[in-house]
Amino acid sequence: MSVRPLSWRELPAAPVITEAGSALRYKTGSWRALRPVIDRGKCIKCLLCWVYCPEPAIIRGEDDGVEVDYDYCKGCGICANECPVKAISMVEEG
């Protein structure tokens, strides 16, 4: 945990989190056993993987091209399963 532990006197009366989106500091990429790899030559920029990603860990570029954010991708494989042109393959980590 990257936050300094507080004494009980410093604790807020209720668990209030004042930093929006602080979960970004918690990297879930280590959960992954299989890694999605995108073949950009095959990608048709349909955005299905971007819409279906539960994290979201698919980054939508300016030109609607997509990239995987490996810091957070848990390797569920939805993107590879749904890609209509099979541009995403799941490869073993390690």
Binding site: G21, A23, L24, R25, Y26, K27, T28, W31, V51, Y52, C53, P54, E55, P56, A57, D69, D71, Y72, K74, G75, C76, G77, I78
Partner: peptide, 16 residues
């Protein structure tokens, strides 16, 4: 407005 780094299971249907 919903960030990754949450602890929902891999493949969960809620974030969509």
């Amino acid at each position: 407005l919903f960030t990754p780094g949450h602890r929902l299971c891999a493949g969960c249907g809620i974030p969509q």
